[in-house]
Simulated assay, not measured.
Amino acid sequence: MGQSKRLLFVALVPPENIQNQVTEIKEYFATKYNSSRALRSVPHITLQPPFKWPTENLAVLQECLQTCAQKCSAFPITLSGFSAFPPRVIYINVVKTPELLKIQKDLIGFTETTLGIVHPPSKIRPFSPHVTVAFRDLTKTNFRAAWLEFRERSLHFEFMASQLTLLIHNGKRWDICNEFPFRGFQKY
């Protein structure tokens, strides 16, 4: 009998009040620009891109993420304005801080050495932290119109990143599978 594998990824998820406001922006893109795929997950900053993992070994993965999270301290995140990966993706820009760059690099290194999870594009592409609001289902025409509307729009949120979040794909959307608090934080 073969092992069943699920798609998972590891992210930083903002607090609920910011999630709600970002989700409103995603809903606007779905309504006005017919781009709804970004609504398939909670607003997040991807640290470890999607990978396949055997569901039977989920506990091993979660133990490793718990260990990794306990090596981290909470740090501030700033979301500032909009940016894009033309011709399809519009996102909220995440300010690249040394702490954010370090946690992403440490997590990628840790999951590779501990679990054998490798994401080849991450080895050649620099980390570009972002919160997607319009995804690859945005047509090129709608991208141009939406980018004209959003490129100068201001947006500013700050929050403390205090945990890693593991998301799992259920076949239709991404669900939060588990959360791993950083050192000094309790899970409620």
Rank of each mutant, 00 (worst) to 15 (best):
K5L: 05
L7C: 13
I18Y: 01
Q19R: 10
V22N: 02
V22F: 02
E24N: 13
E24K: 11
K26V: 00
E27W: 00
F29Q: 00
K32G: 01
Y33E: 00
Y33R: 05
Y33F: 11
S36K: 09
A38D: 00
R40T: 01
H44C: 06
I45N: 03
L47A: 05
L47H: 03
K52D: 15
W53P: 03
P54T: 09
T55H: 09
L61N: 06
Q62T: 07
E63C: 10
C64K: 10
C68T: 08
Q70P: 11
C72R: 04
S73P: 00
L79N: 03
L79S: 04
G81F: 01
S83I: 07
S83C: 05
P86Y: 03
P87G: 13
V89R: 12
I92G: 10
V95F: 02
V95S: 06
K96I: 11
T97H: 08
T97W: 02
L101N: 04
Q104L: 00
T113W: 07
T113M: 12
V118I: 15
P120R: 06
R125P: 08
F127Y: 10
V133G: 00
D137I: 01
T139K: 03
N142I: 13
N142F: 08
A145S: 05
A146P: 06
E149S: 11
S154F: 07
L155R: 04
H156A: 09
F157L: 12
F159Q: 11
M160A: 04
A161L: 09
S162H: 15
Q163P: 08
Q163W: 13
I168D: 12
I168K: 15
I168N: 14
H169K: 04
W174R: 13
W174E: 12
N178T: 09
N178R: 09
E179A: 09
F180H: 03
F182H: 00
F182Q: 02
R183K: 08
R183N: 12
